[in-house]
Design a protein around this nucleic acid. Sequence first.
RNA 1: GGGGGAGUGUCCGAGUGGUUAAAGGAGAUGCGCUGUAAACGCAUUGGCUCUGCCUACACAGGUUCGAAUCCUGUCUCCCCCA
Length: 387
Amino acid sequence: MSDLTRNAVEVLPEGRLAEQLAGERPLRVKLGIDPTTADIHLGHTVVLEKLAAFQREGHTVVLIIGDFTARVGDPSGRSSTRPLPSAEEIEANAASYQEQAFKLLDRERTEVRHNSEWLRMEPEALLGLMAQTTVARLLERDDFQKRLGAGQPIAALELLYPLLQGYDSVAVEADVELGGTDQKFNLLFGRDIQGAYGQPPQSILTMPILVGTDGVQKMSKSLGNYVGVTDPPEQMFGKLMSIPDPAMDEYFRLLLDAETPAGPPNEAKRELARRLVDRFHSEGTGAAAEAQFNQVFVDRGVPDDIEVWEIGPYGGSEPGVILLPQLIGAGFGISSSEARRLIKQGGVKLDGQPVPADALQLPRADLAGRVLQVGKRRFLQLVDGAS
RNA sequence: GGGGGAGUGUCCGAGUGGUUAAAGGAGAUGCGCUGUAAACGCAUUGGCUCUGCCUACACAGGUUCGAAUCCUGUCUCCCCCA
């Protein structure tokens, strides 16, 4: 029990979960995620991990892929109506979400459902659902109040969201629903809907929202401060090293269920990064990523395996000469104007040697086989296939 | 249905006929520094075949020697009244 509620912010209603856990029957524990973006990030894993804990205790985990609700848009924590992804995006995201979720959950023992199964309902049924609440009730939530106060629009569609999420609970007969603290309204609303459909209301458990790598705002893809569970080891390690020291405690506690080790912050952060990389990749990859990190950032070296790039046809006015900005632009996916600026600012190196600010063209022979570097962390191994 | 207001670069946001890729901020990137992809300092931040050229201030036209700034239409959005 204490295990299951550790780190939880609220477990409501008071005492109810304990009663449920005391029963004979395994509980049906629900978590819904809307596949609105392609990747699950560490913030999501806080709740997913809690779900996994219930699973380990023998309860039935119901993972709901909100392929239908993704088209409605969860207003939780939103200060404006969000742009909705297309049906194709949702479908693609849904598939990868599931895969990523199984990095934490036991696939065999997880009931995965798509809520389009039951939410594609007859209009009459939808009206029946809408009859279960009032506009005042739907508007009382904090995020709507703020938007109302600020004169921000609220799409009628957004109003429906809690009803639909609540109906998910009815459809899967949830005993418990998990979510981030920003989900509190929706989770509680589900209780009412279940009640209206003659089911015993679920209890709810909310988890803290993980702060992003900026250490200030919540981790979110759109804010660009996230660490994706599918990020390559080196990238994951680097991103984790970049979090502000004060955020470390939270990361240790919420992601590793551990205390920040005593000692130098740098060491602690390295341990954090190592353990998380190990967890989402495989044992030992954390140490490898760290070695790479040291090589690149501490020793200012070149990582072990870097992408090979064909020098290609970026010919200049004379034969055998390469236009450097174009090569860089193509190789690193930036505009040639930007590449030009980087050269001017001394941000481009060949085998570790800065390229002179006026070197916009170089002979092919001077490039082949060398390592082209932009900034501190982007590298390409140049090869000349034409020679 | 009526009245009012708004659409500017990645985002926020100045600018209301005349050097100018368009103040400022955020973000991002580069350099320096550093235990760190942190903090701090400096710089850069539309594109290109780059001492010049092209495209830009919702969209389409128009007025003008000249428009993001004026006019017309279209689209989108917000507020108030009903």
